[in-house]
Amino acid sequence: MFEARITQGAVLKKLVEALKELVTEGNFDVSSTGLQLQAMDSSHVCLVSLALREDGFEHFRCDRNMAMGIHFQNLSKILKCAGNEDTITLKAEDNADQLTLMFESSNQDRISDFDLKLMSIESEHLGIPDQEYSAEIKMPSSEYQRIVRDLTSIGDTVLISATKEGIKFSTSGDVGTANVTLRHNTTPEKPEEQTIIDLKEPVALTFALRYLNNFAKATPLAPVVKLSLTKDLPIVVEYQIGELGAVKFYLAPKIDD
């Protein structure tokens, strides 16, 4: 059987809210090491990769590997019934066709359980090579959210260029043009307020703003976001979820004809 208990149920709620617009369905692959998900959007332009470690849960048991096919809008409907302070336990028998979600209030005086019907999903996994990136930028996740939201109101695509001057986001549209540059800045005392640019070589790539804006739905999960860029490769937008694991979004670049 599979059983996973997380005291901060709100994390699970935020995670599903971050994913559900981007991917309609996907497999929760559970094993003794934790829970993983790899899912592409319907147009195969972006991919969500989620990895939650077994030791990040208060309790984790998985007797045999399973792929649990989840419809995220449906999971979201159930998780909306959980309180923000609730502890959430996920449970499934081996080869089950349902996932049980149990919500316990913090003072244990309210306990509810919901069964989510599982789906059979043929998922296509992509091999993502571990690699060095030309530029890795850590910045406050709220800053990333603001930049992509602001630029989405001006244009459809953004040119992201990383140089030793900083990281520049540029767009243009019917109303005009916009440029936002962030400089390497380690002045703030709190690490989560710093902008750290680790540059191996200058790089510039163009992306659809709609997706980058969608990734920012993960902002409530983490104070810092990391962007990784290499010429002619998808960008990685990564949020570390405390000690529990990470969610990474990959977006294919726009390519010149």
Binding site: V45, G127, T206, A208, K254, I255, D256
Partner: peptide, 14 residues
Amino acid sequence: KANQGRLESFFTSL
């Protein structure tokens, strides 16, 4: 005008 790349052009299917 730039075309939107698809992930399969960058990553291999397993």
